[in-house]
């Protein structure tokens, strides 16, 4: 069941529910480009909501690169809550968006779903 659909960079990004999970998909027409369990798709999705006015700064120091930008926390949290996704997940996806946009990873090359389980967060 499709629960949301937006356009990002000419792509249709679809949020749908599969079984009991809120999952995302990125489609071009009817062709899925990115699929379930691929966080890049979800990154695109979230980016569409707040990335349009997020100016990115880049600093290069030696072999390291640090990017700095800001997002609308309120909007970000609102979407996360609406879709039943944890807020920190959204932040991961924002960073993943940047990694993808800057060419550090290919589509399908980022998955941020390996998290310590909730019980471990207390450590």
């Amino acid at each position: 069941m499709i629960v949301d659909r937006i356009s990002v960079g000419g792509y249709d990004v679809v949020v749908y529910k599969l079984r009991n999970d809120a999952i995302h998909g990125v489609f071009m027409g009817d062709t899925p480009l990115l699929g379930v369990y691929n966080d890049m798709g979800r990154a695109l999705l979230f980016s569409a909501y707040f990335a349009e006015d997020s100016v990115v700064y880049r600093r290069v120091s030696g072999g390291s690169v640090i990017y700095l930008f800001a997002v609308d926390s309120e909007k970000l949290n609102s979407k996360a809550d609406t879709w039943g996704i944890q807020r920190h997940t959204v932040v991961k996806d924002v960073a993943a968006t940047l990694l993808y946009a800057e060419g550090y990873a290919n589509a399908g090359g980022i998955a941020t779903e390996v998290t310590l389980p909730r019980r471990c967060w207390r450590i």
């Binding site: 695109l44 100016v55 880049r58």
Partner: peptide
């Protein structure tokens, strides 16, 4: 830092 663009635009270029 060096301003390189807007996140959404960077993403659109990559797409």
């Amino acid at each position: 830092g060096d301003e390189i663009g807007v996140l959404g635009e960077l993403l659109a270029e990559r797409l």
